[in-house]
Amino acid sequence: MGQGLGFQQLRKLLLEQDWEDRKELAQKLEQLDSELNTREKLEERVNPILQDQEARIQREFPVLFGPQITESIKKQIKESQDEVVEVLYPIIGRMIKKYITSEIQKLSDQIDAQMEMAFSWEGWKIRIKAWISGTPQKDLMLSKLIEPKIEEIHVIEKNSGMLMGSYTKKEGLDRDMVAGMLTAIKSFVEDAFETEAQELESIDYQNYKIIIKSFNSFFIAVVCTGKLNAAFKDKIDDELLSFSEKVLNKAKHPDKEEVQPDVIEQGLAEYFQDFEDLNE
């Protein structure tokens, strides 16, 4: 027995440290286990690392993925060029048209008008009349100008000259033939001057002015009378662009490329019926 007790004691002496270590180890394991298996606790540890990574990816995104993304966008554009052009045309058209052409035109119109009025016989007549009659000079000036008016609008397929839809206030010439003639005039002029990039924008015919707005696969011809000022043209531009965006896209079957004339005609009527009334 004495030996037994001695052995026990020896064992205790030798292994006590071991026990302590093991207990500590077990505790550490438990803690680790809980940290790994409790989401919040794991997050506490891992989040800073993930956040670092995220910041790095954000920072280096263009370098890491740029080439692949550019490649895939390029491919998509290449494979669906027509759609892309159709979408971009109105936007580019609006931007360029609005900010360059018409602004400059407006400015020059203003200067012209002012110069003309200031120095012309008409200007003096109006001034005298206004002074005698007591009517504001501005009103007299306005009535002097011939009001610009839209007579008819045709939406025409560019290649074939087929009429896709039209809007007229009064029935006149055969619309299909007008569409064909306009297409012929337009494309023959463009052919004759070999201007691939430039397109005919207007035709003056007696007291009509035909404004032509080109899109990718179709063009819109607006037949006007009266004196067209830049503001009027600008407004036509705006209406045509939003008309083409909203109505023409809707007029195309989602599956087929066929265009429904009645949708176009309704749309044209809707957009242009009260066009002049909205003037100023």
């Binding site: 000259g161 087929m162 010439l173 055969d174 299909d176 033939m177 064909g180 003639m181 012929a184 023959f188």
Partner: peptide, 30 residues
Amino acid sequence: SQFSEEYITTIGVKIDKKTLTVDGVIVNLL
């Protein structure tokens, strides 16, 4: 013909229209 011959010389093309009915379908020929 609806349009005068003048058009031919000025723009190089003349367009005429005729409506036909073929197999019950109305076709406008330009």
